[in-house]
């Protein structure tokens, strides 16, 4: 009996001991970020004044770790780049590939990347940029890496590129790699019409193809660009029909009613779009429908 109690006590302690040990460390000494490797790569090895070129922030996450998409979902932070570019160079916005969806811990939903990801960014050199010099692209990449815990990470990136009057010289290996990533970028597709219908707690996106032989995807998922319109967690009901499909999205519980535009990405595993792409960029204004009042509320509510 004594032995049994002892073993159970040990067992109980084993549940609590790790926390005690952890507490011995200061809660405010963060572990260093060592789970993400960041490299700046460029599609060109020389640049030409006036000709926009593409670079990519290549992020390699250690197994089990992830970083975040432009809208991180219920928690997390999007990766950011703070450029320190020389005069005459201007960086555009990050082009974000379709993210993965993480559902741990329940019931939270976050959007981000595991493994390796390239964040594409266009850089525009002024037409007046002097040739015969080398410019340095420089900046800081700031991210949040999470597994069970989250750690903020930061890395300085740097790349030298000569400025020539000739056409930009391509790095074919980098071009190939960026082209792979481009397949995962959302596109606009005039062959698909998007009709939003808002009703009570839901907004339905009705998609119809103009093409005679439309490829209707077997399923799609909507990734919202903002938190305050539709739920990240809401069940998305998908209905396929002839020439198109409907998808029901649940409005966010505490949605910002001043926002009447839904923006995001409809992504599928199938190459359903005109150019064989998988993700459609969506930006549609909708008519917000007032909450349906019950009969009695209608009779007695004077608001």
């Amino acid at each position: 009996m004594v032995r049994k109690t002892l073993i159970l006590t040990l067992c109980f302690l084993s549940i609590y001991l790790p926390q005690n040990l952890r507490a011995a460390e200061s809660p405010y000494s963060l572990p260093a970020s060592e789970h993400v490797e960041v490299t700046l790569i460029s599609e060109v090895i020389s640049i030409q004044p006036g000709t926009t070129f593409w670079v990519a922030i290549q992020m390699q996450m250690a197994e089990g770790w992830h970083t975040y998409w432009r809208h991180p979902g219920d928690s997390g932070l999007p990766t950011q780049v703070e450029w320190q570019l020389p005069d005459g160079l201007t960086a555009g916005q990050i082009e974000w590939p379709i993210p993965e969806k993480f559902t741990v811990p329940e019931p939270l939903i976050t959007f981000g990347y595991e493994g390796e990801i390239d964040l594409l960014i266009p850089i525009k050199p002024d037409a007046s940029l002097p040739t015969g010099q080398t410019v340095t692209l420089e900046g800081d990449v700031i991210w949040l890496e999470c597994r069970e815990i989250c750690i903020p990470g930061q890395s300085h990136i740097m790349l030298d590129l000569p400025v020539k009057s000739d056409d930009p010289e391509l790095d074919l290996h980098a071009v190939q790699q960026l082209n792979e990533t481009r397949k995962r970028l959302p596109v606009m597709d005039p062959n698909w019409r998007i009709e939003p219908v808002a009703a009570n707690e839901m907004i339905t996106l009705q998609l119809n193809s103009n093409a005679s032989a439309a490829q209707v995807p077997s399923s799609v998922e909507f990734f919202p660009y903002q938190a305050s319109v539709v739920e990240n967690t809401g069940v998305q009901l998908f209905r396929k029909r002839e020439g198109g499909f409907d998808i029901d999205l649940k409005f966010a519980q505490n949605r910002d009613k001043s926002k009447t535009t839904l923006e995001g990405v409809l992504a599928s595993a199938d190459p359903w779009l005109t150019g064989g792409e998988r993700a459609l960029y969506v930006k549609v204004p909708f008519e917000p429908n007032a909450k349906k009042k019950s009969f009695f509320a209608f009779m007695f509510n004077r608001d």
Binding site: S75, P105, E106, T110, C146, N254
Partner: peptide
């Protein structure tokens, strides 16, 4: 402002 998207780590449920 009555409601905003919360930001931070996920609650470790």
């Amino acid at each position: 402002v009555k409601s905003t998207p919360a930001y931070g780590c996920s609650v470790k449920y």
